[in-house]
């Protein structure tokens, strides 16, 4: 069996044994989104107008909370050393980690997103774009978050620092994610936005494993 499959299987096995970790992230996503109407009032038109932004921003914040657990346990118990000494290059380990993160966090967030959209009365024409942008955007976020997690590994400030590093880098995903949904609701073409998001995903897929592997090497050094 190839090393990538073995590592992915290990990650999934560990994640499924600790499924509560993923569930709590999704729960945070829903709770944070539910807070907004209490702050701004329940006026339906305003909520519908806010829907794309709220779904995307809260999904990003929820994802931020999940990144710290990505490498820290493996770093502290020595598993990361063993992964680094395995037959697969660290770039592949980084890719497997990001894939496992998406499967256990990005995908559940994506599945929960329409639920929040319903609460906010997102117009029907927006759902297709919502799911497509989530499908393109959440893997990009998993990949960028993996870099942030590797860079802050073993630092004194952990999670908060990680958010400080990652948030500026994912602004483009947020901009085009919400813009595509807005365009779909307004009846404008969304193709251009989706292609850009696809471009971000491809770019992240190529570049982030290199950066993550470089950061992990520094952490193990």
């Amino acid at each position: 069996m190839s090393a990538l499959v073995l590592i992915l299987r290990r990650e999934m096995r560990l994640a499924l044994r600790q499924i509560g970790d993923s569930a709590i992230i999704v729960l945070f996503f829903v709770l944070a989104a539910v807070l907004f109407p209490f702050g701004v009032g329940p006026e339906p038109n305003m909520l519908a107008r806010m829907a794309p932004g709220v779904v995307w921003v809260t999904a990003l914040l929820a994802a931020m909370l999940s990144f710290e657990r990505l490498f820290t346990p493996d770093f502290e118990d020595g598993s990361l050393e063993q992964l680094a000494l395995g037959p697969a290059p660290l770039e592949m380990v980084a890719l497997a980690k990001a894939a496992a993160h998406w499967l256990t966090t990005g995908l559940p967030l994506m599945i929960a997103a329409p639920l929040i959209a319903v609460l906010y009365r997102l117009p029907d024409s927006g759902y297709g774009a919502l799911m497509t942008t989530m499908a393109l955007g959440t893997p990009t976020i998993s990949l960028i978050g993996t870099v942030g997690a590797a860079l802050t590994l073993g630092s004194r400030r952990g999670g908060v620092l990680l958010s400080l590093l990652v948030i500026p880098l994912i602004v483009p995903v947020l901009i085009f994610g919400t813009a595509a949904i807005d365009a779909a609701i307004g009846g404008f073409p969304v193709r251009q936005h989706l292609m850009l998001m696809g471009g971000f995903l491809l770019g992240a897929l190529v570049l982030t494993p290199l950066a993550t592997a470089a950061a992990l090497r520094q952490a193990l050094e």
Binding site: L151, T152, S155, R157, L161, L164, L165, P168
Partner: peptide
């Protein structure tokens, strides 16, 4: 972010 990361270890 750069400065915070620099001083975090």
């Amino acid at each position: 972010g750069f400065m915070a990361l620099q001083n975090a270890f």
